[in-house]
């Protein structure tokens, strides 16, 4: 008599394999701190000049309206980097302005996997670095499962 395919033996053999499958990992605050350190080098990161606008309470983590703006003429801004420390990957977006850019302000929609802190870093052409962070609560997480 032939057994049906997934026998109890198969399940028992599969169990330890399943246990070793990678679970959705999360970026950590330390990882984001490392990325920022790599970005700015020895330059101290100051608060101000950059504004990160995000809702403090997020109902749907799949679509979160984000606006990032730098209070300076666009010619002085080298680039903007956005990081999320609770997402599987800490990077969110990088923006670099060219000679035909208007004002250093970008709006988009992002995914947030969980309640976390989102950080924006602006590097200026004079070498200074500025940051703004928003700590927010996410009620419905972005689907990563």
């Amino acid at each position: 008599m032939s057994r049906p395919f997934p026998t109890r033996r198969h399940f028992l053999l599969a169990a330890p394999v399943c246990a070793l499958l990678p679970t959705p990992s999360r970026a950590t605050e330390a990882q984001v701190a490392t990325l920022i350190a790599e970005l700015v080098g020895q330059v101290p990161v100051q608060s101000g000049r950059i504004t990160l606008d995000l809702p403090l309470l997020v109902e749907n983590g799949n679509v979160v309206a984000m606006t990032v703006a730098v209070d300076a003429p666009v010619g002085l801004v080298r680039d903007i980097h956005v990081f999320a420390d609770g997402n599987p990957l800490p990077d969110v977006a990088h923006f670099q302005f060219g000679p035909r850019a208007g004002v250093p302000r970008i709006a988009t929609r992002i995914r947030l996997a969980t309640s976390q802190t989102v950080t924006a870093i602006a590097r200026m052409n004079d070498g200074s670095c500025w940051k703004d962070s928003v700590e927010l609560l996410v009620t419905l997480a972005a689907c990563i499962e």
């Binding site: 929609r109 992002i110 995914r111 947030l112």
Partner: peptide, 8 residues
């Protein structure tokens, strides 16, 4: 722009 999976 460099975009990552965190963009909706």
């Amino acid at each position: 722009m460099s975009l990552f999976p965190a963009i909706s």
